[in-house]
Design a binder for these strands. Structure first.
Lengths: 337, 337
DNA sequence: GTGAAAGCGCTAACAC
DNA sequence: GTGTTAGCGCTTTCAC
C-alpha cells in the first residue's frame, strides 16, 4: 500500500510537500509537483481514508437510516440519496433498522463513532425525542417523510400528503363515487394522519359523511391491503371505491376484490399512493398519487451536505408536491350501478 | 466528543489502561476497570472510528457493489447482505455503479483507500480482468451471481441458473406446450447464458427443436419483456408458452399479450424467474423459478467475513438451488387449442 | 518553496 | 498492573 511517505522518499522531498502537491494546494514548485504527481500515479497511490478522516475530522461518508430496503419506496429513496451523494463524492453507509431491537444505538454509533459526517433518517416511527437530541448535540441530520413537531429547526424533506390524498379522493368523487373507503397505514405514522385528513376533507367538501367503518388500518404492505379489503367488502351497501395509502396495499386490495368475484374498476374503483415502478404494469394499471421518491432522497442529501458544510439553510422544510396519475384502476365513468 | 484521553484524566490513569479496560483485555485491576467503564458510560464515550481504523488497519465496514438498487432483485440482495453484516457488527457501504462511466474506480477507491475491509461485487457485466486483479492484490472479495472463469480461487456465490431454467421450461412442456419462446437477458451476462442452455436442453430432451426466432434478447426490465413479447407475438403459428429470464420481463410480456387481445395463461402460458415479492400478487399470479436472493447476499457476506478473518474457505463456489413455484400464469392444463 | 514537528484518537510493545 | 512510548497515515502550522 503506497503511502505519502513512500512517495516523499521516492521524490526526495518531505511528506508535507507531497501532501500539498497531492491536494492541489499552493506552495509547491511546479516541477516538484509534477514529479510528485507522476510518482503517485505510477505507484497507484490512494490516500488512506482512516488517516485522512482522523486528521480532517471528516469521513466523506453519509449515513442513511431506513426501516428496510426491500420494498419499492425505500429502495427508490435510497437510490435517490445514493445518486446525489456520489455526485458530491460522498460515500453512503446503509443502515436498516427493522427487526432491530434498538435502532437508537445505530444513530449514535454512526455519528458518535464519527463514522459518517451526517445522517439522513427515514424512520416513520415515534422517536422524536431521540432525533431532537441528536440534532441538539450538533450532528448534521436530515429527516425524510416526517415532520418533527417538537422542533422547527430540524431540516425535513416531506411530501404534501394532505393534498395528495385530497387529489386522489377528489378524483374518485369526480368519477361519481360517493361511498369511498380508505385503507390507511398504521396511525402512529405521520404520513397516514395527513392522508387521512385529506381523505376526510375531500369527502366533507362534497357533503359526504364517511362512516368510521369505511376506514381500515393497514400496514403499508400487500397483506394489510388484502386483509383490510376483505373487511371493507362486507360493508352493506357496498363501497363504490377505495383509496389506499400506498400502492402495495392497493395491490393487496385488488387481490381481495378479485377473490370476492368482483372487478376493478367496474365494481370497485381503486386509487393508490406512491406510483411504484410496477403500478403502470399492473392489471388494471393503477391510478395513484405519485410521490417524487428519488427526488426526496436527492433533496435530503443535498440539504444534509449544506448542513455539513455549514451553509445557511433558509427553509428547514422542503415540501415536495404529489401528482395524480390517472390510469385504469379508477375507471373512467361512474362505476356503480 | 469524549476521547480516551479525557477518560484517562478523569480516572487518573493512562490512556493505555483505558484502552485495555475498554477493550476487555487483561492487565487492568478490577476496580480500576470498573471505574473506567463507569466514566466511559457517564461521558457517553464512543471510540472514534477513524482513529481505530487507522491503528487497527480495519474499518469494520464492508462494501457492496451493485448496478442499481431500485428493482426487486438487487434490493433484496443488498438486504440479505445488510442483515448479515449487521449481525456480525459490520457496517455496509453501498455503491451503485449504473450510469457511472468508470465503475472500476469505485472498486479501487473503496478498497484502495481502505475504506472497507472487503467487497461484495454484484456486477454482471464484463470486467473479469479487473476483478481478478483486485483479488490478486490480496483484497478480500466475493463475487455474486457470476462465475469468474479466469480464476478458480475467487469466492463466488451463484445460483444454479441452468437447472432453474431447465425446471421452468420442463414445467411448461409438462403442461403440454411445445412451441415455447424464451425472453432472455443481455447475452453478455452469464446468468442468461446458463438459462439459455437450460431452455435449450429442456426442449431438446423432449425432441423439440427451438427456432432461433423463438428467442428474444431483453434487458431484464419490464420494457424489454414488453418489446420482446410484441416480436414473439408475430410468430406464426403462434407460440403456446413463454419462458422469461426474470419476473420483470414476464410482467412486461403479459402486458403485451393482453394488449394483443390474448389471455394468460389461456392463450399463452408464462413462466418467470426470480419470484419477486409481487409475483404472487400479480394477476395472473406468476409461475416462476425462485432464487433465494436474500440468502445469496447473506452467504456472500459470511464468506467475505471468513476471507477477511483469514479463515480457510473450503469451497470457493457456493451454488444455491432454485425452486419452481407454480402459480396461475402457466395454467394447469394444455393451454393451446 | 520546503522541511521539521506536532497532532488527530487509538492500539500495542515494552519498561517499570 | 500500570505508564511510557511509538506508530498507524495524513494534514497543518511554523521556521527556515
Amino acid at each position: 500500500m503506497t503511502t505519502i511517505k513512500v512517495i516523499a522518499q521516492e521524490a526526495g522531498v518531505s511528506k508535507a510537500t507531497v501532501s500539498l502537491a497531492l491536494n492541489d494546494k499552493p506552495g509547491v514548485a511546479p516541477h516538484i509537483r509534477q514529479r510528485i504527481l507522476e510518482i503517485a500515479k505510477r505507484l497507484n497511490y490512494q490516500p488512506n481514508a482512516s488517516a485522512r478522516g482522523l486528521a480532517l475530522q471528516k469521513t466523506q461518508t453519509l449515513g442513511v437510516i431506513v426501516p428496510d430496503i426491500s420494498g419499492p419506496f425505500y429502495a427508490e429513496l435510497v437510490r435517490g440519496v445514493g445518486e446525489e451523494s456520489r455526485a458530491h463524492d460522498y460515500y453512503l453507509t446503509l443502515c436498516t433498522t427493522i427487526g432491530r431491537p434498538s435502532r437508537e444505538r445505530m444513530y449514535f454509533q454512526l455519528l458518535g463513532e464519527q463514522r459518517v459526517d451526517g445522517i439522513i433518517v427515514v424512520s416513520p416511527r415515534n422517536d422524536e425525542a431521540l432525533i431532537c437530541q441528536i440534532h441538539a448535540e450538533g450532528f448534521p441530520l436530515v429527516v425524510v417523510d416526517r415532520d418533527i413537531q417538537a422542533s422547527d429547526k430540524i431540516v425535513e424533506v416531506i411530501v404534501d400528503n394532505f393534498h395528495g390524498a385530497l387529489a386522489g379522493v377528489e378524483h374518485l368523487i369526480g368519477l361519481g363515487h360517493r361511498r369511498i373507503g380508505f385503507i390507511n397505514g398504521p396511525p402512529e405514522i405521520q404520513a397516514t394522519q395527513d392522508r387521512l385528513r385529506g381523505y376526510q376533507l375531500a369527502l366533507r367538501e362534497h357533503r359526504i359523511t364517511p362512516e368510521d367503518r369505511w376506514i381500515c388500518v393497514g400496514d403499508f404492505r400487500k397483506e394489510g391491503g388484502y386483509r383490510c379489503m376483505q373487511e371493507l367488502l362486507s360493508i352493506k351497501p357496498p363501497l363504490e371505491a377505495i383509496f389506499t395509502a400506498n400502492d402495495l396495499m392497493a395491490i393487496g386490495a385488488i387481490k381481495a376484490i378479485r377473490e370476492a368475484g368482483k372487478r376493478v374498476p367496474d365494481d370497485i374503483a381503486i386509487v393508490g399512493f406512491d406510483d411504484i415502478p410496477l403500478a403502470a404494469h399492473f392489471d388494471p394499471s393503477l391510478t395513484t398519487v405519485r410521490q417524487p421518491v428519488a427526488r426526496m432522497g436527492a433533496v435530503a442529501c443535498r440539504l444534509l451536505l449544506q448542513e455539513i458544510n455549514g451553509e445557511e439553510i433558509l427553509e428547514c422544510k422542503a415540501i415536495l408536491q404529489t401528482e395524480l396519475i390517472v390510469r385504469a384502476s379508477s375507471g373512467t365513468q361512474e362505476g356503480g350501478d
